[in-house]
Deep mutational scan, measured.
Amino acid sequence: EKTLKIVADSEEEAEALAKELAEKYNLEVTIERNPEEEGKYVITIKIKP
């Protein structure tokens, strides 16, 4: 299993990107607040072998 993390500037941007990735590529995608940067969100994508 591989994990890729993407940082987005807004929750709306994160949700839109996560939804597109999940639907288009059938990936497991989660969104959470970035504890290191206020106002940023981390999109985590898990790629199963």
Rank of each mutant, 00 (worst) to 15 (best):
residue 1 E to S: 02
residue 1 E to L: 06
residue 1 E to T: 05
residue 1 E to V: 06
residue 1 E to R: 02
residue 1 E to H: 08
residue 2 K to E: 15
residue 2 K to G: 15
residue 2 K to M: 14
residue 2 K to Y: 13
residue 2 K to I: 15
residue 3 T to R: 02
residue 3 T to K: 04
residue 3 T to H: 06
residue 3 T to S: 04
residue 3 T to Q: 04
residue 3 T to L: 13
residue 4 L to Q: 12
residue 4 L to W: 15
residue 4 L to G: 06
residue 4 L to H: 14
residue 4 L to N: 08
residue 4 L to K: 06
residue 4 L to D: 08
residue 4 L to V: 14
residue 5 K to Q: 15
residue 5 K to S: 14
residue 5 K to P: 06
residue 5 K to C: 15
residue 5 K to E: 14
residue 5 K to G: 05
residue 5 K to D: 06
residue 6 I to H: 02
residue 6 I to Q: 02
residue 6 I to G: 02
residue 6 I to L: 09
residue 6 I to S: 01
residue 6 I to F: 15
residue 7 V to C: 15
residue 7 V to E: 15
residue 7 V to Y: 15
residue 7 V to H: 15
residue 7 V to D: 14
residue 7 V to M: 08
residue 7 V to G: 10
residue 8 A to E: 01
residue 8 A to I: 07
residue 8 A to V: 15
residue 8 A to K: 13
residue 8 A to R: 09
residue 8 A to H: 01
residue 9 D to T: 05
residue 9 D to I: 03
residue 9 D to S: 07
residue 9 D to R: 04
residue 9 D to F: 04
residue 9 D to K: 04
residue 9 D to L: 03
residue 10 S to C: 03
residue 10 S to K: 02
residue 10 S to E: 01
residue 10 S to R: 01
residue 10 S to P: 00
residue 10 S to D: 03
residue 11 E to H: 08
residue 11 E to G: 05
residue 11 E to Y: 13
residue 11 E to Q: 09
residue 11 E to T: 04
residue 11 E to S: 09
residue 11 E to W: 13
residue 11 E to N: 05
residue 11 E to L: 13
residue 11 E to K: 13
residue 12 E to R: 07
residue 12 E to G: 08
residue 12 E to Q: 08
residue 12 E to N: 06
residue 13 E to G: 03
residue 13 E to V: 08
residue 13 E to I: 12
residue 13 E to T: 08
residue 13 E to Q: 10
residue 13 E to P: 00
residue 13 E to F: 08
residue 13 E to H: 12
residue 13 E to A: 10
residue 14 A to I: 02
residue 14 A to L: 02
residue 14 A to N: 00
residue 14 A to R: 01
residue 15 E to A: 11
residue 15 E to Y: 14
residue 15 E to M: 13
residue 15 E to P: 00
residue 16 A to S: 07
residue 16 A to E: 09
residue 16 A to T: 08
residue 16 A to R: 12
residue 16 A to N: 09
residue 16 A to P: 00
residue 16 A to M: 07
residue 16 A to V: 06
residue 16 A to L: 08
residue 16 A to Q: 09
residue 16 A to I: 06
residue 17 L to R: 03
residue 17 L to F: 05
residue 17 L to D: 00
residue 17 L to I: 12
residue 17 L to N: 01
residue 17 L to V: 06
residue 17 L to T: 02
residue 18 A to L: 13
residue 18 A to Q: 05
residue 18 A to Y: 12
residue 18 A to T: 04
residue 18 A to E: 02
residue 18 A to H: 03
residue 19 K to P: 00
residue 19 K to F: 06
residue 19 K to L: 08
residue 19 K to V: 07
residue 19 K to H: 04
residue 19 K to T: 07
residue 20 E to P: 02
residue 20 E to L: 14
residue 20 E to F: 14
residue 20 E to Y: 15
residue 20 E to G: 08
residue 21 L to H: 02
residue 21 L to R: 00
residue 21 L to W: 04
residue 21 L to V: 06
residue 21 L to E: 00
residue 22 A to Y: 13
residue 22 A to M: 14
residue 23 E to C: 09
residue 23 E to R: 12
residue 23 E to L: 11
residue 23 E to F: 09
residue 24 K to F: 12
residue 24 K to S: 07
residue 24 K to G: 05
residue 24 K to H: 06
residue 24 K to C: 15
residue 24 K to V: 12
residue 24 K to M: 13
residue 24 K to Q: 08
residue 25 Y to A: 03
residue 25 Y to L: 03
residue 25 Y to C: 15
residue 25 Y to N: 04
residue 25 Y to D: 06
residue 25 Y to I: 03
residue 26 N to Q: 12
residue 26 N to S: 11
residue 26 N to V: 03
residue 26 N to L: 05
residue 26 N to T: 05
residue 26 N to R: 07
residue 26 N to D: 09
residue 27 L to E: 12
residue 27 L to P: 01
residue 27 L to W: 13
residue 27 L to V: 12
residue 27 L to R: 10
residue 27 L to T: 15
residue 27 L to K: 08
residue 27 L to D: 09
residue 28 E to P: 14
residue 28 E to W: 05
residue 28 E to H: 10
residue 28 E to Q: 10
residue 28 E to R: 05
residue 28 E to D: 07
residue 28 E to M: 07
residue 29 V to M: 04
residue 29 V to I: 11
residue 29 V to F: 13
residue 30 T to P: 01
residue 30 T to I: 05
residue 30 T to C: 07
residue 30 T to H: 07
residue 30 T to A: 05
residue 30 T to R: 04
residue 30 T to Q: 04
residue 31 I to K: 01
residue 31 I to R: 01
residue 31 I to E: 00
residue 31 I to T: 02
residue 31 I to C: 04
residue 31 I to W: 03
residue 31 I to Y: 03
residue 32 E to T: 08
residue 32 E to C: 07
residue 32 E to W: 04
residue 32 E to A: 06
residue 32 E to Y: 03
residue 32 E to L: 03
residue 32 E to I: 07
residue 33 R to D: 06
residue 33 R to S: 09
residue 33 R to T: 10
residue 33 R to K: 11
residue 33 R to W: 04
residue 34 N to L: 14
residue 34 N to F: 12
residue 34 N to D: 13
residue 34 N to Q: 07
residue 35 P to I: 10
residue 35 P to C: 05
residue 35 P to G: 08
residue 35 P to M: 12
residue 35 P to T: 12
residue 35 P to S: 12
residue 35 P to V: 10
residue 35 P to R: 08
residue 36 E to D: 14
residue 36 E to L: 09
residue 36 E to Y: 09
residue 36 E to H: 09
residue 36 E to K: 12
residue 37 E to R: 08
residue 37 E to G: 11
residue 37 E to S: 09
residue 37 E to Q: 08
residue 37 E to N: 08
residue 37 E to M: 10
residue 37 E to A: 09
residue 37 E to T: 10
residue 37 E to L: 12
residue 38 E to M: 09
residue 38 E to R: 09
residue 38 E to F: 11
residue 38 E to Y: 10
residue 38 E to Q: 09
residue 38 E to K: 11
residue 38 E to I: 11
residue 38 E to D: 11
residue 38 E to A: 12
residue 38 E to W: 08
residue 38 E to G: 06
residue 39 G to F: 07
residue 39 G to V: 02
residue 39 G to Y: 04
residue 39 G to P: 05
residue 39 G to M: 05
residue 39 G to E: 05
residue 40 K to G: 06
residue 40 K to W: 03
residue 40 K to F: 04
residue 40 K to M: 04
residue 41 Y to S: 01
residue 41 Y to R: 01
residue 41 Y to P: 01
residue 41 Y to N: 01
residue 41 Y to E: 00
residue 41 Y to Q: 00
residue 41 Y to W: 14
residue 42 V to A: 02
residue 42 V to S: 02
residue 42 V to K: 01
residue 42 V to N: 03
residue 42 V to I: 14
residue 42 V to R: 02
residue 42 V to L: 05
residue 42 V to M: 04
residue 42 V to H: 02
residue 43 I to G: 00
residue 43 I to L: 07
residue 43 I to K: 00
residue 43 I to P: 00
residue 44 T to H: 05
residue 44 T to N: 04
residue 44 T to S: 04
residue 44 T to Q: 05
residue 44 T to C: 06
residue 44 T to E: 05
residue 44 T to P: 00
residue 44 T to W: 12
residue 44 T to I: 11
residue 45 I to S: 02
residue 45 I to N: 01
residue 45 I to T: 02
residue 45 I to W: 07
residue 45 I to H: 01
residue 45 I to M: 05
residue 46 K to R: 06
residue 46 K to M: 13
residue 46 K to V: 14
residue 46 K to W: 14
residue 46 K to H: 13
residue 47 I to A: 03
residue 47 I to T: 04
residue 47 I to D: 03
residue 48 K to V: 13
residue 48 K to N: 13
residue 48 K to Q: 14
residue 48 K to G: 12
residue 48 K to T: 13
residue 49 P to A: 11
residue 49 P to M: 08
residue 49 P to K: 02
residue 49 P to E: 08
residue 49 P to V: 13
residue 49 P to R: 01
residue 49 P to T: 11
residue 49 P to H: 11
